[in-house]
Amino acid sequence: MPMSKHEIEELMRLIGLTKDSEINCEQCLALVAEFAEQELAGRSIHDGLEAVEHHLSICPECREEYEALQRALGEMEDEADK
């Protein structure tokens, strides 16, 4: 089936975001725990973690895994507050 309008527009979005140097999924995995804790604490993202933020905007699988981590971390924090 040919690519749909939505799929073509998503490809254009990705091309617009593409950088010459990007981290891959394994490198993202090594850094995403720190990134998630920074975000959860409301701290600004430092330079070393901007690559994670960018990778999550490009990679649907890592984004899905990050959202799952956020669910777990959110509840971990709720439990710690009790």
């Binding site: 725990a33 720190e34 804790e37 899905e64 895994e65 981590l69 777990a72 971990m76």
Partner: peptide, 18 residues
Amino acid sequence: GRSQFLTWATTIAIRIAM
């Protein structure tokens, strides 16, 4: 050691599950 150990361990488990 840049995050809590349990957060790091959870990211690995989530990747395997997903």
